[in-house]
Design a protein around this nucleic acid. Structure first.
Lengths: 365, 365
DNA sequence: GTTAGCACTCGATACGTACGAGTGCTAATT
DNA sequence: AATTAGCACTCGTACGTATCGAGTGCTAAC
């Protein structure tokens, strides 16, 4: 019965786990008698009561009122999750999935493959669908961000004269991401000017990432081109710069916001309203998106419990996020938003699976 | 005191209007005494009571329980709205807006102009913003659909060789709508083949609407091109056909879903959940989008009250829709979803204003 | 160290009462 | 004949009280 690092002996840990497990399942405060029967450790309710009193003193559980069972505190959840993650990591090699789950996942994978092959060019639709899938599968709310394309290499730029004063600007990046725009210029541009400009742009910029095309380089290019071709060129370049800067437009898709009504503790009118609002507006979600190097969680999965979340309106929720990678450094974020008493195990597993699938998909294309 | 067409004499109409007006304002059943004081018609509560009893018999109002005031029925609302719309139409010429409103609207208009001029190419963003504006302004939920582009004329098609086996396809339509896609072909295509194909496509298709580019024409073109250029061409054409058919992808933006929590009668957990779900999923909203010629409402404004709505989950709501026009025949739909007791007058006016602004904006571009 | 037993707490539920807004009806008034 | 005053009645809401039971903390026994 050695004391653990957290000051919880083995038995306390088991009891805490039992409390959390049953609370996750039922959503109601769990009493000593329940634990006494539920667990395989042969202990009477009285003993459990004593241990639970200790756990309460240590801040892992709390009793909503005197004569109720205990529910986990954030600290309790945190301990539970950390332990779970550690165990998952240790077992990650010898994970042998249950066949049932495998079949289900395989079906989902198929669905996605089918979908993606039908509309390869529509990354947006894909992500939206993934969000939907996630929400449906987990019964929580989901979000997914478009991967950053800042690190994406430019493949091809093309200017085409459209009509008088109008130029079509098309940018193609690695992974076949396309951005296009019609640029209005004040004076007419000749066919030769366009051809020259095309050549200049492609030779100078080809293979560079959007990041590398910093303002200095571009405006240097602008003045260089300007010397040769005058005012109109400057306008085109200006539009190009804008386009490139806008190309990285971060977008977030959400789904299953109404799933939160499945959890009474979140169904309260104002809580729900705020929550759904943030999911609808999307702006508030950016703080959930992983920064470049999130060294703390090397596997890219982060769990925020209750107050830990950076999003104000999610104080009563837990949030699990994972990152997926397009290729080197181009990360997107997937997130699940649910009640504190979410099925962390399942969510983490699901996120891992989906992440892998996304990685595969993007690697292929 | 002549009997009106609806069997409601002038006084009953006034009382009905008074009931609805105050109910719209307060959201609570209104009693006879309130009316007696509120209106300018000098009548005692007893008289009002008698009249209200009549109105109840005729089905215009209903008492939620014996000792409560009356609330309007759908029939009552319908009468009210019809009358309002008629009056608005009659007065449409001599509408002199209150300066306050004008200022406010003008500010909104400015906001939109500013926004639109900054990102002319992003129709999507514009519409999303309009939805947001509407929701914020009215305190109801809003939706807006992208205008159909089936009637849009093709301005320009361009194929460009990207790399081995990859061709960039760009379609530019009237109003500078751009669709682009990367097409993968099994064999390489030569530069000359591409040039020829470009010429063929532009000469044949230029100026046609997407509608006119029916399958027959395109597949005719396909076989014609195919004779000259072989298998690869067929693949390109196939992609083109797909692109054109997908170009008209109807999209719906919604905003302010959480506004419904401002109305207790909709805040019930399941009602709200269903409602927000439909707004989130968007699919169910297509039935609100106006068909080609909705002759019944010549001004393009339609009011659905309660059960009248075609959307199942909105049985407890009222929905007001308006159409805006890009140009001939290219219509989009704007909609407001709120409680039965919505401020119909304000909503209709707001929709009319926004519609006009949208029309202006699209005519200009 | 564990457990049985017991008094105690407190939320949930049910029920009774008081209150008041609003009605319908009748009789008086204009 | 239409309007109004008056009054008994209805019913939802608020509130206080009683009961119940799940679960606790504590003490004493094992």
């Amino acid at each position: 019965m050695a004391e653990q690092d957290d000051g919880l002996d083995e038995r306390k840990q088991q009891i805490l786990k039992a409390v959390i497990d049953t609370y996750l399942a039922t959503g109601e405060p769990v009493g000593s008698r329940t634990i006494s029967k539920y667990t395989d450790l042969k202990l009477s309710s009285a003993t459990i009561r004593n241990e639970m009193a200790d756990l309460e003193d240590m801040g892992y559980v709390i009793a909503p009122h005197t004569s109720a069972g205990r529910i986990p505190t954030d600290k309790g959840y945190r301990f539970y999750v950390d332990r779970m993650m550690q165990i998952m990591k240790e077992n990650s090699d010898q994970i042998e999935k249950k066949q049932k789950d495998l079949d289900k996942r395989e079906k989902e994978l198929d669905d996605m493959r089918k979908f993606i092959s039908s509309k390869v060019d529509k990354v947006d639709d894909l992500l939206e669908n993934v969000a939907r899938l996630l929400a449906k599968d987990t019964n929580y709310a989901s979000m997914i961000s478009t991967p950053s394309v800042k690190g994406n290499k430019l493949k091809f730029i093309q200017l085409t004269k459209l009509g008088s004063g109008k130029i079509l600007l098309v940018i193609v990046m690695d992974g076949n991401l396309i951005r296009s725009k019609v640029v209005e210029v004040s004076e007419d541009i000749t066919q030769e000017q366009i051809l020259k400009l095309n050549l200049l742009l492609n030779t100078t910029l080809n293979g560079l990432t959007l990041e590398q095309m910093n303002l200095a380089l571009l405006s240097g290019l602008e003045s260089k081109a300007g010397q040769e071709h005058g005012q109109i060129i400057r306008e085109v370049m200006q539009a190009l710069i804008e386009s490139i800067q806008n190309a990285d437009h971060l977008q977030i898709y959400t789904s299953g916001a109404t799933n939160i009504f499945k959890y009474p503790e979140l169904s309260d009118s104002t809580t729900a309203s705020e929550l759904i609002s943030t999911l609808e507006e999307k702006k508030g979600l950016t703080s959930l998106i992983k920064s470049e190097k999130d060294s703390s969680a090397e596997d890219g999965i982060t769990v925020y419990i209750g107050d830990e979340t950076p999003v104000e309106s999610m104080k009563d929720c837990s949030v699990v996020t994972a990152t997926y990678e397009l290729h080197d450094g181009m990360k997107g974020t997937i997130g699940i938003i649910g009640p504190r008493r979410m099925d962390y195990q399942k969510v983490v597993e699901t996120l891992k699976t989906i992440r892998t699938q996304l990685d595969d998909i993007f690697k292929k294309s």
